[in-house]
Simulated scan of single mutants.
Amino acid sequence: SFVLFFLAKVLETGRGVWWLAVGAAVGAALLSKYTAMFFGAAILIWLAAVPKLRRWFLSPWPYLGGLVAFALFSPVILWNADHHWVSF
């Protein structure tokens, strides 16, 4: 729910800082369910499909949001690497 709410804020305000909140929400979602990874693909498709949103590909904000999501999810990746990828 927070991912969609923050994406709506990106759309409503046009402020890039909301991408950090999107990244935090996706990262938190990934901590509970790995299927939240589909948010990444859905967001990319959304940005590519809507012409007025394609400008975000030239902005650093979505990429920084992706880094936030990765940073939040990285302990899970590290744990799995140490445990033979048991939960993947």
Rank of each mutant, 00 (worst) to 15 (best):
A36Y: 02
G23F: 00
T35L: 10
L20D: 12
A24F: 15
A25G: 08
W46R: 07
M37S: 08
A25Y: 04
V26E: 00
M37T: 10
A41T: 13
W18I: 07
L31K: 00
V17R: 14
G40V: 11
L44H: 08
T35K: 06
Y34I: 14
L20A: 07
W19G: 01
K33G: 04
I43G: 03
A41N: 13
A36W: 00
Y34S: 15
V22Y: 06
Y34M: 15
A25S: 11
A21T: 07
V17A: 14
V17D: 14
W19C: 07
I43N: 05
M37K: 01
A24H: 12
L30R: 04
T35P: 12
V26Y: 00
I45Y: 13
W46I: 06
V17P: 12
K33Q: 09
M37C: 09
V26T: 01
G16I: 15
W18K: 11
I45A: 14
G27V: 04
I43L: 07
I45H: 12
L44Y: 06
A29N: 07
A24C: 09
A36V: 09
W18N: 10
W18V: 11
G27Q: 09
A42M: 05
A36F: 01
V22D: 01
A41M: 13
T35R: 05
K33E: 09
I45T: 15
W19I: 08
V22E: 08
A21Q: 05
A28R: 01
M37Y: 02
K33N: 05
I43K: 07
L30H: 08
T35Y: 03
L44S: 12
L30F: 05
L47M: 05
Y34P: 15
L44W: 07
